[in-house]
């Protein structure tokens, strides 16, 4: 997948996670990689960049299992940005689905109609 495009989507996923709860870096990586193919190389720079831009703040929480963890917390500014990104994404992906599903969703059905047309 186009790297720039993928980065935008993952940025939205990171923001979505932090809308729900404050959490630490590794937890975000671990959570997201359950559902999508993504690694630290993509997620950490997003966390850092959005923190630099004031979308997240950070604080340390002592851990029983080792060093303290850096928790990320979404700011008001981050929330506004999230809503804007989400709206763009919804309208974009809505449009994409409309285009690709014009001929129906089922693969067999798409294939059958394509075969019919080229024969």
């Amino acid at each position: 997948m186009n790297a720039q495009f993928k980065r935008g989507i993952i940025e939205l996923c990171v923001l979505s996670t932090l809308v729900e709860k404050d959490t630490y870096g590794y937890q975000i990586i671990s959570d997201l990689s359950q559902y999508i193919d993504v690694n630290e190389n993509t997620i950490y720079p997003i966390l850092r960049r959005l923190t630099n831009e004031g979308y997240f703040t950070t604080y340390l929480v002592e851990s029983n299992e080792g060093a303290p963890r850096k928790y990320y917390k979404m700011s008001e500014k981050g929330f506004t940005y999230y809503m804007q990104l989400r709206e763009e994404w919804d309208s974009f992906i809505g449009g994409v689905y409309h285009i690709i599903n014009q001929g129906g969703k089922k693969h067999e059905e798409i294939l059958r109609r394509f075969k019919e047309r080229i024969n």
Partner: peptide, 30 residues
């Protein structure tokens, strides 16, 4: 410091060295 923390957390989760490599990716690109 952030990476030391994340690596420690990944180890606590019980990830193997191989899985760690995959999860943390390439440091040069990063």
């Amino acid at each position: 410091a952030d990476h030391e923390e994340m690596i420690q957390n990944a180890m606590l989760e019980g990830l193997s060295e191989e899985e760690m490599k995959k999860r943390f990716g390439d440091p040069v690109n990063l």
